[in-house]
């Protein structure tokens, strides 16, 4: 019996601006532990929208979302923030690093917020994560001193800092060239194989998707194949 990390039950969402359109239509799926799942589909089919719901940032939907077996329904904003902090790592197309802080500090921030370990331990862990991603040498630089690929790897290190249940990525390689995209992809592979990390990655890259454990294909707000 495989452990379920994330489960979507009949998730639907509509936008009312300017006219009511259904973006997600009864989406159902399960993500199991240690799985590397990719989501593909045409532009505008609702992949990002789905991911924002799964990440608990978007709460305006119908249906039910279970993270680690827990329903996200009727949870307060602060509770959801805590769940995101502890259980979900997120990597976006854009890196969203804070230029006021060093690379190391950026990686440490969610860890400091969780406050499970002492600051020294968090720092050690952050250096360890950076080392896995091969950028521990840049730890003391400011994010704006890094290349695009390096920044994205820092963002992945940040997503990893609290050892999340699942890492979600919305086209994390979308802004990168082929070479850097491959590096990031290899990092994901390494994370699943060596560290048993569960991953859910939205991508446009067919080749990327082919190399994952499972592909969820979407069209017009529905899952057509998984």
């Amino acid at each position: 019996m495989k452990e379920i990390v994330l489960e979507a039950r009949n998730i639907s969402k509509e936008f009312h601006d300017p006219v009511t359109i259904q973006i997600l239509n009864n989406v159902n799926f399960k993500i199991y532990k240690k799985e590397f799942v990719s989501v593909i589909g045409k532009s505008g089919c609702g992949k990002s929208t789905l991911l924002y719901i799964l990440s608990t940032m978007d709460t305006e939907y119908t249906g039910e979302l279970l993270v680690d077996g827990m329903s996200m329904k009727n949870k307060k904003e602060a509770q959801l923030a805590l769940i995101r902090n502890e259980k979900i790592g997120f990597v976006f197309q854009f890196h969203y690093l804070l230029n006021e802080f060093s690379v190391l500090r950026n990686v440490m921030l969610p860890g400091l917020k969780l406050n499970k370990y002492s600051e020294q331990e968090i720092e050690q862990r952050a250096i360890e994560k950076l080392r896995i991603l091969g950028i521990d040498k840049e730890a003391l630089k400011k994010p704006n001193q890094l290349s695009g690929g390096q920044k994205q790897r820092v963002a992945i290190a940040r997503a990893l800092i609290n050892d999340p249940l699942i890492i979600m990525g919305d086209e994390p390689t979308g802004n990168l060239d082929k070479k850097n995209a491959n590096i990031v992809f290899d990092v994901f592979k390494e994370l699943t194989h060596s560290f048993n990390q569960t991953l859910l990655i939205v991508t446009h890259d067919q080749e990327f998707a082919q190399n994952t454990d499972r592909i969820i294909e979407m069209e017009d707000g529905r899952i057509i194949k998984q």
Binding site: S55, M57, E77, A78, A81, L82, R84, F92, E100, K113
Partner: peptide, 16 residues
């Protein structure tokens, strides 16, 4: 804005 958004995405609440 970006920094606030990522702080929230990584687990800081509105009150934080």
């Amino acid at each position: 804005m970006d920094s606030i958004a990522i702080l929230k995405a990584t687990g800081f609440s509105g009150n934080d």
